[in-house]
């Protein structure tokens, strides 16, 4: 975990609105090795915009600035859009919340994986197909040959998300950004998908940024957790030490969720302090 894969220093994302400029991300800094990092926050905390800024998917009207935003020594903000595109999907990949919206509905799953592979690598059709099938197998799809020829609407949400992971991993990226990858899935399917993700990340030595609103899920899955509030990082902590979190917001987030076997009536609620956002 010594080599730094991603270095983010003072990242800011600003959106122009009718009432003036709004900063969605206000000076976020962290670094990532070949590890699993969780970014946790509630809606409006800027967690997704952080992920998108790293990926280069910020909407064009918004402005991204940072003292440093480097992936494997490459300064992401100074390279050309073309170089950025080449990086995206090849060395950096992203999984979004709902596979329904991120898979092309008029192309079979297999063809999408093959196309992804062939835009980034010069491989023959037959080899691409081989690798796509192997990838589908790796995300534990039992009958890869059948799923290969299916359209996205013909598979369940869990299967679709697995196909999405397969598509993202087929090029062998070094960094994976997963934005709420399991929120749209049923709880039991959720764990299957996480298991697959966990195994692949461990086997391939990838860096993973796992963005989620669910602090407990993230802490059970990641090595380290970055907690965001109102566009800022309020706390960075090892997942194993989460019980000793210092910031009242982190503690509040942990406590306010009901848990099976821990009865508290009423549930503790967050007492938001203005200075957290300051």
């Amino acid at each position: 975990m010594s080599d730094t894969l991603l270095d983010v220093d003072d990242l800011r994302v600003t959106f122009p609105t009718r009432t003036g400029l709004v900063q969605a991300v206000r000076g976020v800094s962290f670094s990532l090795g070949r590890e699993r990092l969780g970014i946790v926050g509630e809606s409006g905390s800027g967690k997704s915009q952080t992920g998108r800024a790293i990926m280069g998917l910020t909407p064009p009207q918004a402005e991204v600035s940072a003292k440093k935003l480097a992936f494997d020594g490459i300064d992401l903000l100074s390279i050309s859009p073309r170089e950025r595109r080449a990086l995206r999907g090849n060395r950096i990949a992203m999984i979004l919340q709902d596979p329904k919206y991120s898979l092309d509905p008029v192309m079979t799953i297999g063809r999408q994986i093959v196309e992804t592979l062939r835009t980034h690598e010069k491989v023959s059709k037959a080899e691409a197909r081989e690798r796509a099938l192997a990838m589908l197998q790796a995300v534990q799809i039992r009958d890869p040959a059948r799923v290969f020829d299916l359209y996205p609407h013909e598979v369940s949400g869990g299967m679709g998300q697995r196909a999405m992971i397969a598509m993202m991993l087929v090029t062998g990226p070094e960094l994976m950004i997963a934005d709420e990858p399991t929120s749209a899935l049923d709880v039991t399917v959720q764990l299957d998908v996480l298991k697959i993700l966990d195994k692949l990340v461990a086997e391939r030595g990838m860096g993973l940024i796992f963005i989620s609103h669910d602090l407990r899920l993230v802490s059970s899955f990641c090595d380290r957790v970055v907690v965001m509030y109102a566009g800022k990082v309020v706390e960075q902590i090892k997942a194993s030490e989460l019980r000793d979190a210092q910031h009242p917001y982190t503690r509040g987030l942990l406590n306010c969720m009901p848990r099976v076997g821990f009865e508290r009536h009423p549930l503790p609620v967050l007492d938001r302090k203005p200075e957290w956002a300051a």
């Binding site: 509630e42 809606s43 609103h213 669910d214 602090l215 509040g252 987030l253 306010c256 969720m257 009901p258 009423p266 549930l267 503790p268 609620v269 967050l270």
Partner: peptide, 11 residues
């Protein structure tokens, strides 16, 4: 809803 808001509504 967000987790903290969920707690308020459940209460």
């Amino acid at each position: 809803l967000d987790a903290s808001v969920q707690a308020e509504v459940l209460n």
